[in-house]
Write a protein that binds this DNA or RNA. Sequence first.
DNA 1: TTGAAAGCGCTACCAC
DNA 2: GTGGTAGCGCTTTCAA
Lengths: 341, 341
Amino acid sequence: MNGTTIRDVARQAGVSIATVSRVINGSGYVKDSTRQRVEAAVQALGFLPNNLARSLLSGSTKIVGAVFPDISNPFFPVVARGIDDALTSHGYMLIICNTDNDAGQEEALVGVLLQKRVDGIVFVTGSPESSGLVKRASAQVPVSLVDREIEGAECDTVTSDNYRGAYEMTRYLAGLGHKRIAFISGPAKYSTSRKRLMGFTDGLRDSGAQEQPLLFYGDFKYETGYSIGREILSAGQGITAVFAANDLMALGAMRCFLDAGILVPAQIAVAGYDDIFMSPLVRPSLTTVSQPAYRMGAVAAEMLLERLQSAGRAGRQGARFLALDPALVVRESTGGGRSSS
Amino acid sequence: MNGTTIRDVARQAGVSIATVSRVINGSGYVKDSTRQRVEAAVQALGFLPNNLARSLLSGSTKIVGAVFPDISNPFFPVVARGIDDALTSHGYMLIICNTDNDAGQEEALVGVLLQKRVDGIVFVTGSPESSGLVKRASAQVPVSLVDREIEGAECDTVTSDNYRGAYEMTRYLAGLGHKRIAFISGPAKYSTSRKRLMGFTDGLRDSGAQEQPLLFYGDFKYETGYSIGREILSAGQGITAVFAANDLMALGAMRCFLDAGILVPAQIAVAGYDDIFMSPLVRPSLTTVSQPAYRMGAVAAEMLLERLQSAGRAGRQGARFLALDPALVVRESTGGGRSSS
DNA sequence: TTGAAAGCGCTACCAC
DNA sequence: GTGGTAGCGCTTTCAA
């Protein structure tokens, strides 16, 4: 264990601890010869300043917490990387928490984060159940939200424009001539689910090609997409296109169709949302709406950092809301183009 | 900001700070009525104990650092989740670092982790360039290694048996009748690469079906697998099976073959290593060697926790080495069975 | 059962 | 230029 303290260094160098502090912080005046003696002592002892003590004084740990449903789920790791890169380049580090969407767990973890005195927290998606928690947290430290909107909380939000992404995909599918398009929605409690669903129904209406929206509800999981795919087949409603609220479900449904001997896109076109890592790699490659996951994370972290920098209460700007542009990525699964992978 | 301290609580409750401390820690004797008054004060003030101060005293932050090449790369998020779950269930939290395999970056990040006084560090794969760093780190705090071996460092190691996994896959491919099997290796500097390569060459030798190993060297990336796939096709060596040292390269090569109109597995069989999330989902689904990524992370964290628990220097056991069992997962890409997804 | 006080390692202010 | 010292918020003896 490394028990060497500033005191040991001071003794070794024959100076006071105040001088050692000046040297390791590069602050104040120190005679050159003294500085060298201190630096030598630091080397000799392998001294590492204790940031706990520093933080206790300064009130800043240079640590930010991030709350995820599940970091092992595609899409989130990319967001995490975006957050971490932004933080690292400013000398901050990242504590990651997995909630599995369990409100109790989330509550507990955020509590610990606060006790550890993180300088800020990034919440990445989540259900409105925890909006109270987010508000409480943002009363203590700056908070950024990724892909989730909570009204009344003073914190910055970064999303991509879920409504527009879904709207454009729907128009695209209708434009391909599909008249019976099914939509596999995510749980209605998430604002992203609702936005995408609205984009879908509005897109349908504006295309004027289909009277009734054909809706299915899933939970964003691959397996669920697969089983809903089966429902779609047995429903026998003449569905020619399926648009899922995320890639995992789209991939599940597509796999179900292929397993059933249905040709994609010839018999049924499939589209997803997110553009996760594997979507260009499957066959047929998946048409989808690309969300700038990395940038969403990076921007959320940068907004947080801005607030931390201007912590002088001076720059206390109001809550900012930023919707990044989603992008239609046409690949093979809708027959609308050649492979883009 | 939450500036309430134990002092404020003490004043509010009309007791000393020592008593407040006893109440929030449930230690020592406190009269029931006093306890209630203190608890009421804690509630009223929204007091949250400052763990920085606690850690300064106790010498433990209940934070563990984990060093990854890149958390956004498949395989690692699952390991991370395994680590985090083990830690969380013991009241610890996880700081994640991305090094991009940059030795300088790794050095810097580990330095900061140590200054922040993390209780331990988990290193997940990496090049031998940083073995000096690992040794230095393990002189300060307990260290666990995942999927990486470093001799002479007193730290626990968890891997899967890379030699055996590759050996068995090779025997399996040879058993299918392949006489010209190409191997796409990872960079030779990683011990996992070397082990898998040895498993391959030994497997070949023991099968007695092929004189010369056909070797290609990649860097574990999808794109590289794709371009090596092209090399393999143009080499015209009558290769009928390709075994890649990880799934990403296998997937890349397979995609290349499919794009070239080569049938998989009919004309060329393809196998990978890792069994990442998407391997069962592509078409044809990928035959591969499954590594228990989640368990590797969880076990590494548990070993670390054991050392932390028995920090009384009493349980100072020597370095432990654990190789978990890999498993052959036969899917469509080798034609050896039906889809397993 | 409770309070006073000594630090944990460090920074920053004030003398010299 | 340099050293002494007062805390940052908390836990933990030691007395009372």
